[in-house]
Design a protein around this nucleic acid. Structure first.
Lengths: 152, 152
DNA sequence: TTCTATGCAAACAATTTGCATGTCG
DNA sequence: CGACATGCAAATTGTTTGCATAGAA
């Protein structure tokens, strides 16, 4: 099976770019980290392995990853960009707990279908969409936890 | 019928704040402007009436408006905050044309219902959500227009 | 060797904040 | 009066860019 790293190498090659240790490290850290990391978090983790890497390189590499289709930039509304893995993972929406910050990736075919319908009724052809559901998860409800909600 | 301006006055009073000409002007401009204005746009329009008003006051007042429930901050993903009127207008989602930038407010009860279901299946109780549909409107499709898409 | 990449610092854009002064209640 | 608000400029934050140097192909 084709690995994400191969996709990256192909992208690099196809565009006359170069494979560098920094890029490899950043891709590795990103792919190994599952979640929705901010550039800052990514930078910290990368520095843990190689303190000489600069922030700019992380920013530049994440942009490359997005262009190559491996990563996707998402915004939860707090002004910080986050990246999620895109390769091999299909489209999904987000279900976010406002108390503990848990972020579940969800998908509902019926909703997806209705979104298309809704757009069509307005004469639109959809290219993509983003859906964020905010609420409180079962665990936090029973804990009675609360946290200052993000902006809405 | 209670006007938006009354809500603002109540909020001001309830919190020991003060009514000032700047705040009145900003609220007036905002409520009169329908669309999804950025702070910058709002600032420009306010300056047209009173050039002495500062940006900071616009930022501060919009935050007040959000707290008072009159405005809502929305992010379309380009890094700039926009505000839409919240008072008297019910919840809606966004259908955005990537070619001309048109932004239609849409709502689909069925989708709303399914979102609740989806969340419930994961043990969540929803408090709010945001849904942005990106596509190309009928007019732009026939015009064959194209525009660099926003980040996704 | 020839471009591309990197690190660093300066540059930027959006937003926030400190402070002296002005003003609503 | 006295607390809150304002304008301005300086400060922050997140991100981008210019440049001299290092490094991949």
């Amino acid at each position: 099976m084709k690995q994400a790293i191969d996709v990256f190498h192909e992208y690099i090659a196809r565009n006359g770019l170069k494979v560098t240790p920094q890029r490899m490290l950043i891709v590795e850290v990103f792919m190994g980290a599952g979640g929705h990391l901010t550039t800052e978090e990514l930078y910290e983790r990368v520095k843990a392995t190689d303190p000489s890497v600069g922030q700019a390189t992380v920013y530049r590499t994440m942009k490359l990853l997005c262009d190559s289709g491996l990563a996707k930039e998402v915004h939860f509304g707090d002004g910080v960009a986050r990246y999620e893995q895109k390769y091999g993972s299909k489209h999904h929406d987000h279900l976010i707990c406002e108390a503990c910050g848990e972020n579940i990736e969800v998908l509902d075919d019926e909703i997806e279908r209705l979104q298309e319908d809704l757009a069509r009724r307005h004469g639109y052809v959809l290219t993509s969409h983003r859906m964020y559901l905010f609420g409180v998860c079962g665990k936090c409800r029973s804990d009675g936890k609360r946290r200052p909600a993000r902006e809405d």
